[in-house]
Design a protein around this nucleic acid. Structure first.
Length: 505
RNA sequence: GAUUCCGUAGCUCAGCUGGUAGAGCAUUACACUUUUAAUGUAAGGGCCCUGGGUUCGAAUCCCAGCGGGAUCACCA
């Protein structure tokens, strides 16, 4: 590739040569030991001044203000920023002033990574700063960093907001936009809170295959790949459900996995081709237990991140205080449309859905029509966490039939902020019923439903050995992260959201 | 995939009904030993996304393409 160098890039390469000519390695190999961070100094210096007399800290230069023979600069480390004060005669005690006049003033740039030693003091204007006694270049930056300025009341100027720049060059986004890092720290805290909760319940974290011979456990178009040595196709997993249930058959009574799933479908602000779902399964439990477990866990997650159950999302406040509201699917539809699904036959239902403006085609069975009505007319209205329960059997091929309601299954979905956040059920463990459900899926596929499930014979074999009654759930981790970090786009909670590859010719 | 908006200096953005480019920050030079969106003076920096078309003349108007955002469809 031939990248035409800009004026500023040429200047920085020239500085690189000058540094080497002056005997300074711009990329030294030896370690630079630090004993402080920016956040540590800001938090603790005032009440413990004696401990900050001899500090060593490293970071990236983010701004420089030269005032003749003394200068102020800001360096940024993982924890934040701190001002440093560089005085010529302190870093150049002898006759040779070139370290200050040439190296610091001319050859260092915003974006360079330096290590300094010195002592902490408070400036006349009251800012905690580091008085530098020695300075060492640790890495020279050859590409100019976009400068974002912030004034004393916190207003930012010239912030880089271009989504393409931010997502393609996340490394730069993380350096210049302070809130971005915080989002990802919160995402990890959220996953840690979930892990802790599930571990305390006695569940075992496991890993199951990403490369699968049959893409099972969900209805979606898979990515397909090929194994050369075996000369067979493999699919990137669309879900891990069937593998976790195999482990329950094998005697693990509680298992969970953060599963990176892959679906070859559209991308928008709530969909990325690869995304993360937490699934967990617990033997001898049912979906009623799972609702309680789910709401307790999400309440804990909100507390871990926000210290309160009330989570801001856009202009709304979402309250994760348990228990969450519960309503059956049919009651939800009746409430929002006045339609009593149970009173209508298939044709009447189809007509009613069309009258509501739903997009209905003739391949759709009763279950899909009901799903369409709910999706169009109800789903978006559930801002506060709400469990929607008891779905038609046709749209739930892996779910146990309802203990008392004919034609329904023991399933719930959790709606938050008008979107599905979780999907759970009492797992179907009757192998003969399961085989029939798979066969119904094949019929749907033959009718033209391109997202019906494949038969997984090995999974059926596992069920025939006997699976205990089990409750299972899948929770969209990216969507949960969006809510917990108040971001409207999935791209903002993924470090490297999928983009069309750049052309470098 | 459909509709729509956007693409100008390293970054943020101006650029009117067509007359071949401007500002702030950044960069370069000089001054300044407690400043903080530091300041003052001066200078340099542009395939105006790409390719066609209209026109005497296009950053500007039209068409196509590329890239991105938003909305819709499919899905989680």
């Amino acid at each position: 590739m031939t990248h035409q160098l800009t004026e500023q890039e040429i200047v920085r390469r020239q500085k690189l040569d000058q540094l080497r000519a002056a005997g300074i390695n711009p990329y030294p190999a030896e370690e630079f030991i630090i004993n402080a961070t920016a956040a540590d100094i800001h938090e603790n210096y005032e009440r413990d001044k004696t401990n900050y007399k001899d500090i060593s800290i490293a970071g990236r230069i983010m701004s420089v203000r030269v005032m003749g023979n003394a200068s102020f600069a800001e360096i940024q480390d993982q924890t934040g920023r701190i001002q440093i004060y560089v005085r010529r005669d302190d870093i150049c005690p002898g006759e040779d002033k070139s370290m200050y006049n040439t190296v610091f003033k001319k050859l260092l740039d915003i974006g360079d990574i330096i290590g300094i030693t010195g002592y902490v003091f408070t400036t006349q204007v009251g800012e905690i700063s580091i008085h530098v006694t020695s300075l060492k270049l640790l890495s020279k930056a050859l590409r100019p960093l976009p400068i974002v300025k912030t004034d004393e009341s916190g207003n930012t100027f010239d912030a880089v907001t271009d989504p393409e720049f931010r997502y393609r060059q996340r490394y730069a986004d993380l350096i210049i936009n302070a809130t971005v890092k915080d989002t990802f720290v919160k995402r990890t805290k959220m996953m840690n809170a979930i892990r802790e909760h599930l571990n305390n319940l006695g569940l075992l974290e496991v890993d199951t295959p990403v490369l699968q011979p049959i893409p099972g456990g969900a209805a979606a178009r898979p990515f397909i790949t090929h194994h050369n040595a075996l000369d067979v196709p493999f699919y990137l997993r669309i879900a891990n459900e069937l593998y976790l249930k195999r482990l329950v058959v094998g005697g693990f009574d509680g298992v969970y996995e953060f599963s990176r799933n892959f679906r070859n479908e559209g991308m928008d602000r709530t969909h990325n081709p690869e995304f993360t779902v937490l699934e967990f399964y617990v033997a001898y439990r049912d979906y009623e237990w799972m609702m309680k477990t789910c709401e307790t866990m999400l309440e804990k997650v909100a507390l871990a991140i926000h210290g309160t159950t009330e989570v801001p999302m856009g202009d709304k406040i979402i309250n994760f205080a348990a228990p969450f509201k519960r309503i059956t699917l049919f009651d939800a539809i009746k409430e929002h449309t006045g339609i009593d699904v149970t009173a209508l036959n298939d044709e009447e239902l189809k007509t009613a859905a069309r009258n509501l403006g739903c997009n209905i085609d003739n391949t759709m069975g009763r279950g899909k029509i009901i799903d369409a009505i709910f999706g169009d007319k109800c789903e978006g209205t559930y801002v506060q966490p709400t469990f929607i329960t008891d779905y038609p059997v046709e749209m739930s091929p892996l779910t146990k039939k309802h203990r008392s309601k004919e034609g329904l299954v023991e399933r719930f979905e959790l709606m938050v902020n008008g979107k599905e956040l979780a999907n759970a059920y009492s797992e179907l463990n009757d192998p003969i019923d399961q085989r029939e459900r798979f066969e119904d899926q094949v019929k749907l596929m033959e009718r033209g439903d391109d997202e019906a499930m494949y038969i997984d014979h090995d999974f059926l074999r596992a069920l025939e050995y006997g699976m205990p009654p089990t409750a299972g759930i899948g929770i969209g981790i990216d969507r949960l992260a969006m809510i917990m970090t108040n971001n409207a786009s999935i791209q903002d909670v993924l470090f490297f959201p999928q983009m069309r590859p750049e052309k470098w010719d």
